[in-house]
Amino acid sequence: MDNLNHLAEQVQALRKELDQAGQTGQEDKLSMILFSGDLDKALAAFIIATGAVAMGLEVVIFLTFWGTPLFRKSEGRALGKDLMSKMFGWMLPKGADKASLSQMHMAGAGTQMLKTLMTKKNVASLAEMITLAGQLGVKVYICEMSMNLMGFRREEMIAYPELQYAGVATFLAEAKKSKIQLFI
């Protein structure tokens, strides 16, 4: 009898868990925060993102902080910025092609070596992965506050098909519905 009661309790607990699970994380969706602007980490993020689309998942990437400059255009500048914004503009990489490795950068030598290897081994470059993600319908949100803090203007960002500007609530609303959430 004790055993039965114990079982009944377990069933109750499981049912409760199931009910709660039903309210969140139901969609076949991957929500990812790309916080890092490092070449290696960003590459991993976009490989996961494009792979996820192939697996039938909807994908949302939220670019924030150091990840923000990955979507800068490589050419051109915005006029009329204040000194601090200009300095950030000079110091941060202009786009995905300028990103460097998180380790073994070695004043550019390591990053260059990896890029050469990637070409040799037919691994797509970060810029190519971003283009592919755009073609596959990966949605990208850029953190409005990072843009503001670093003094970036929208006209400085690349033409990406599903690019939007948003805040933390937008990401969390997506993440809450998603089966998978990642922070890179």
Binding site: I47, T50, G51, A54, M55, G56, N122, V123, A124, L132
Partner: peptide
Amino acid sequence: SGLACPMPIVQVSK
């Protein structure tokens, strides 16, 4: 042939 991760599954899913 010659394609590296994630291209094979991206292509095949298309």
